[in-house]
Each structure stands twice: as C-alpha cells, then as structure tokens.
Computed example of a mutant assay.
Amino acid sequence: MTEQLLAGKNIAILVANGFEEVEMTEPQRALLKAGAKPKIISPEQGLVNGWHGAAWGHYFPTDRHVGEVLAADFDLLVLPGGDRSVAKLATNPHTRRIVGSFVDAGKGIAAFGKGVELLALVERIKTRTVTGADSARAALEAAGAVWSEDAVVQDRFLLTAQSSENMADLIDAMLRHFEAAVEQRKQAA
C-alpha cells in the first residue's frame, strides 16, 4: 500500500548545516523506496552538512533553496532535528512561511527530535499534542501545544517523535502517517 499512496508524491525535507544526519537519511531512503520524490530544501547553497554523533557528518546536495520554495510545491514535509540546523532555520523567515503553510493546509508533517521546535515558530499549533526533544518543550507549550511524554505522537496531520534512537519504528510510523495524510487529502478533494 505504501508504494501506491506515496508514489510520485513530492516531499520536502527541510534542513540546514548541522542537521541530525540519521533523521534525514533514514526517512529519505524509506520515502525513495516507497516511490516518493523527497527533496532536500535548505538555506545552504549546493551542499548541506549533516551532524553525525559528536562530529560533522557527510555533505548532501540540496535540491532547492528555501527562499525559492512554496509549500504548494510539496505534498508532505519532514523536519529532522539537530541543534545547529534548527537554530539556523528558526531565524529564517522562509522557514516560518513554509511550515506555516503546511500547518494551514493540513498537509502531513513528520518532525523528529529537536526539529519539532520549528513547529512553535508558526504559532498555529494550539491544542495540538506533540512530543520531541526535551529542549523543545518550553517553546511548544508557549505556542499552545500540549506536551506528551510518549515517544511518538500523531495528532491529525502532524507526527512528532522524541528521538532517533529507534529509527525503524519512526520510519514505519512516518510512512503510515503520510499514507493516511495522502488518503485524507484525496478524500477531501
């Protein structure tokens, strides 16, 4: 079923230098396998550098610059964590525009670890139940979200996860979540 529902879907993966590498590469790999078309969106030009463990990781080619992207160009959104990446994206006005447009449209979003903090920027997550990195809790609660201690939380179009310790379970949850989001949008059309 995954291959049918996600085949051909354009999926934005929003990252900046210092993103948590496994939180980008594992979803990207699973989405490609499901027939989707994941695209790396970044404020970096050409290449974006991941963070792996306690040091800089690999470089990855970017597909589109964040300033040239509209949420309407994509069906789904992935927000990997990483302290440096989230800090840089949080200061970029295009991040607010893109994430806010996904929230407003009710399009599927999967946010991992520290990446969940980017949802607080849009100030449109009041009453949504979320989880993520503990460091994101205060910002999300200030934005009106309801914090959960669960490892993975789904609230309508939004899937949030605390960490990447068990990526296989997170990937399964993300694929099921994205399938449901695509099906809901198909039925609403």
Rank of each mutant, 00 (worst) to 15 (best):
I98V: 05
T95R: 01
K88R: 15
M24L: 13
Q184R: 15
A110E: 05
E179R: 09
Q4V: 09
A111Y: 01
G46A: 10
D172T: 13
V146I: 12
G46Y: 04
A173M: 03
A188D: 15
E23A: 06
G106Y: 10
A145N: 07
T91E: 15
T62R: 11
Q187Y: 14
T131F: 02
M1P: 00
H177W: 02
G108M: 04
H52N: 03
A72C: 11
A71T: 09
F60C: 10
W147C: 00
V122D: 02
I13H: 08
R185I: 14
A55I: 01
L79V: 06
D63V: 09
A161W: 05
L76C: 08
T160Y: 04
P93R: 01
K107V: 11
R124C: 11
K126G: 12
L170M: 11
L159W: 02
E26L: 11
I40C: 07
A105D: 13
V15F: 06
Y59G: 13
E44R: 13
V130L: 09
P80H: 03
R156C: 10
G50A: 05
E141S: 03
Q162C: 10
G46C: 06
F102W: 06
V66H: 13
V146F: 06
P43T: 04
G18E: 01
A136I: 02
V182Y: 07
D104S: 15
A36E: 04
L175N: 02
A90N: 06
A143I: 05
E123I: 06
R185W: 15
R176I: 09
R156G: 11
L79R: 00
T160I: 00
L119H: 01
G100N: 04
E117A: 13
L79A: 04
N166R: 13
T2C: 07
F157Q: 12
H94W: 03
K39E: 12
G53L: 03
A143V: 06
I11A: 08
I109Y: 04
T2V: 09
S163F: 14
V153G: 00
M174H: 04
H58K: 12
V130S: 04
L70T: 15
H58G: 12
D83V: 14
R84P: 09
S101D: 14
A111E: 04
F19Y: 03
E23W: 03
R176G: 06
